[in-house]
């Protein structure tokens, strides 16, 4: 794995969100690659199979976040995934490890959520 703590693929159609969250996670010591839509994310994932976590927005033009995670899991069934949403009326069910609300607390929550999910998936 590259980076101190591993590589995260960050997907959101709003470049602002992508960049802001990437900056936070990079400050936490992760290596972050970014994508602005599902297709782009699939290409980036194929190019960097060492990705250890995917964080994707739910609502994106083209492919939704859940579809994207579904297709990536078809290649790597155990890849940890976090879904970002703007509203809290989404029920991602068992498809993702956590879902995270894009609210005013996200600056703090994102780091905690990533740590939690990665800890859960860490090899014993």
């Amino acid at each position: 794995m590259s980076g101190e703590k591993g590589r995260i693929l960050m997907v959101d159609d709003d470049p602002f969100v992508v960049e802001m969250l990437a900056i936070i996670l990079e400050a936490d010591g992760y290596e972050v690659s970014t994508a602005e839509n599902g297709e782009d994310a699939l290409a980036k994932f194929t190019a960097s199979p060492d990705t250890g976590l995917i964080i994707s927005d739910m609502n994106m033009p083209g492919m939704t976040g859940l579809e994207l995670i579904g297709r990536i899991r078809a290649c790597n069934a155990s890849l940890p995934a976090i879904l970002l949403t703007g509203t809290d009326d989404v029920d991602p069910g068992q498809e993702v490890d956590e879902y995270l609300l894009k609210d005013e607390n996200i600056q703090d929550n994102i780091s905690l959520s990533v740590e939690r999910v990665l800890a859960r998936h860490a090899p014993e």
């Binding site: 709003d14 602002f16 969100v17 802001m20 894009k102 609210d103 005013e104």
Partner: peptide, 17 residues
Amino acid sequence: FRSAHTIKGSSRMMKLV
């Protein structure tokens, strides 16, 4: 709609209520 939505989302993250 997407533009308004995007402003809403990112302003929320920036705590600009």
